[in-house]
Design a protein around this nucleic acid. Structure first.
Lengths: 191, 191
DNA sequence: ACCCCATCTTGTCAATGCCTACTTTCCGCC
DNA sequence: GGCGGAAAGTAGGCATTGACAAGATGGGGT
């Protein structure tokens, strides 16, 4: 069942098991419902075992956030560099990521639950933002737009806000595909 | 100090005191750091006293959310009905509210921490959204825009996302006034 | 063969949320 | 005016939790 050395005493891949269980709990009941002891019970392991893989409860959530930023980097990285509406497609990918991985997303933007100064977290965040950052700097028509950073922040805010509102159940479901809804939000000018 | 009947035994306005203390804690350390017993200590009251005003921990947070939606309704209600860029100004008011009342805002959009089916909460939410709703229905140039709901959702997403990113410390501080930054985000077309 | 050390267990402690039972104070009502 | 109930607050207890310390287990490298 697990890669390295599974015995009655050693679980084999407890780290992954705890992470997966945590993601299930977060997705169905929210971060607040996460309990290290409960996760240990789900993995059929003693109550202190998880602490050996993630120091802390914050450590566990930090690991999830790191994984999340990795997934996000992969998602935005998959958008073709020469896509017609690049920034718009990046936003769509962002929204799709958030709705596909709600548990990761929920944790990623709550720094107060995390070890916000953990090097792996900062690195993972940086890797994810690097795509967007270089995109902004090498902006195709940076001259036409007064400030490329504002266009990027605008797209990010729109994608982030839409995803957040959808996940909290606040925004209505206009289309079958949320990413399609997002794309339709970019076009209209707000009076 | 308090309105009704303050004695050594009766606090006077424990409800308000607990709410205020909770808002301080949330603003500085986040919802996760809220403890009913700690709030009781801050109000110099026995540990079970708060429960008489708010049933639950979720009840306390629900009360905060209700208050928050009330403040939001007031904020968006203050935007003049004939403002030039109405929807844009509503968004600016939304952003200003979120940054002025971060603790309320943090709780309002986390339904899983609340008694989401509490009538007062639903009513308060409805009152706040009523402004925007009627705004969308009586849209000035509803004919020019393919779908007024999309423009509204777009503005809401942009405002909500920008506020959220700012509050989580993710978005950079481009201008001195966040509302000004927001207004500048509405204008640029995303390529 | 042996030792090191990552992994997991057991036991403990303070803090918390919630419950029940009890006390004190207030307010309306006769 | 006082009386009775409801509101407001107190006291104690219980199960759960996060964190910590100390010990048990077993595999891998030398």
């Amino acid at each position: 069942m697990a890669a390295p050395h599974h015995t009655a005493y050693h679980h084999g891949d407890l780290r992954r098991a705890v992470l997966s269980a945590a993601l299930e709990v977060i997705a169905s009941e929210g971060v607040a419902a996460v309990s290290l002891r409960d996760l240990a019970r789900r993995a059929r392991v003693s109550h202190a075992a998880p602490a050996h893989h993630f120091k802390d409860k914050a450590g566990l959530l930090t690991a999830i956030a790191v994984e999340g930023f990795g997934l996000l980097a992969a998602a935005v990285g998959a958008v073709p560099a020469d896509a017609p509406h690049r920034l718009r497609e990046l936003g769509a990918a962002y929204v799709e990521f958030a709705l596909a991985h709600p548990a990761h997303f929920e944790v990623m933007f709550q720094p107060r639950l995390l070890h916000a100064d953990a090097p792996e977290l900062i690195a993972a965040k940086e890797r994810a933002y690097a795509v967007l950052r270089t995109d902004v700097e090498n902006f195709p028509d940076a001259r036409r737009t007064p400030d490329a950073r504002r266009a990027a922040l605008s797209a990010w805010s729109l994608a982030h806000g839409f995803a957040t509102l959808r996940l909290s159940g606040s925004a209505p479901e206009l289309d079958a595909d949320p990413a399609a809804t997002f794309r339709s939000l970019v076009a209209p000018r707000i009076p």
